[in-house]
Design a protein around this nucleic acid. Structure first.
Lengths: 208, 208
DNA sequence: ATTACTAAAATTATCTATAATTTCGCAGAA
DNA sequence: TTCTGCGAAATTATAGATAATTTTAGTAAT
């Protein structure tokens, strides 16, 4: 949410646009015109083009050679694809994180989980949910994997905010607790299995 | 290898640099200076910057805000990471490709496999190997997944060419045949399991 | 009414120039 | 010798201008 301090103009533009795409402020399929974006941000279009490339690598826009970029659409198929990739990669990350898991980490994760329970709206809930996943996966120490998961989580969030899912229901939190319990009792494979199933359910709710 | 016809200058530059990084012509850790690259390609540095972003998204270079880009290094850890991600994602792709598998596809894969046997050098072998994997995974029809796998295969190829692995030994081909056999006899899970194990062995040879 | 063609407008991609930042080497002090 | 600070050179990042391509709109022909 908070774009933090990001030195270069391209990244600042990129993050702002990403927020808009994820929140649904810019709808899928609409064109992004570099001059207009540049003017809005008071910049030239060179950093805008680089921001577009950033967004492209996250799968938020698609770019055709001389025809500009447009916000990536997401069909039921694409949502399922992202969910399956997340399930696969998050399970992998969790199995690798397991040997480095400490009580402190699990406690922090539990706190993130509670923050989700207290969340007043879907945006706050999404942030807490994302934090929970990040906290339990980060100890794997595999940066490339974590980056990939992060991009997939962004795509998932986009889906979540799109209104396909009317309410963010409670079962997810139950899953989170089940994962923590499994980790606490040393059942790595069980935890990974629950996590994989948990992530996949995200792609199955409310087929529009 | 053949860069094909790629309209924009950035992509042409990007592909050429990618080839050099993969083949080891540019070694890990060395800086890429935009002016020098621009001069070599007879272009300005604007498209060069975009090419850098492309390479960054593939994980071939790392970029620090005002300090330029350098060729991504690969430690034993990173190689293992890529191998595990490949194993996980290729298994997922294969399970999803299975329902769409046809005899024609399997025959084409077998032909790619034979091409690997006939390969005169490691570069030709790598191309045949990559084709084999692509052919059996493409029917899954999940573009984002296939793109991710493709980038990981590129990283693997880099490792293969780096000389860590002295010779590209035969067991891989045996694995390929085992995968084809499992697919032909309808054992999807078996095929996926062999594929996952097969990919992981790539990261375990010759620890320098 | 619909299609095809042409010209104008808008937009993308690139180049050249400029500003800002970092790197590198060297001088001087501890 | 080793560390610190200053200044020049190199390099990155952005701006402004230009060329090339695509889109749009309007007109004429079927």
């Amino acid at each position: 949410m908070t774009t933090a301090k990001s030195d270069t103009i391209s990244t600042r533009i990129s993050k702002t646009l990403a927020d808009r795409i994820i929140s649904g402020a810019i709808e899928a399929g609409s064109r992004l015109r570099q001059d207009h974006v540049a003017e809005e941000f008071g910049a030239s279009h060179v950093p805008v083009r680089e921001a577009f490339r950033l967004l492209e690598s996250q799968g938020l826009v698609v770019s055709e050679p001389r025809r500009g970029v447009r916000v990536a659409g997401f069909t039921r198929e694409e949502v399922r694809e992202v969910a399956e990739m997340r399930a696969s990669l998050e399970a992998l990350a969790l199995r690798n994180a397991f040997p480095h898991m400490t009580k402190a980490i699990l406690d922090t994760a539990e706190e993130a989980n509670r923050a989700g329970d207290r969340a007043p709206d879907v945006y706050a809930w999404e942030e807490a949910n994302r934090n929970f996943h990040r906290i339990i996966l980060a100890p794997c120490g595999m940066p490339r994997l974590l980056k990939a998961i992060d991009d997939l989580q962004t795509a998932s969030a986009r889906f979540l905010f799109s209104g396909w899912r009317a309410e963010w229901e409670a079962p997810t939190d139950r899953d989170h607790r089940a994962i923590l319990d499994a980790l606490r009792t040393g059942q790595a494979d069980m935890a990974a299995a629950v996590l994989a199933r948990h992530v996949q359910t995200i792609g199955q709710k409310r087929p529009k």
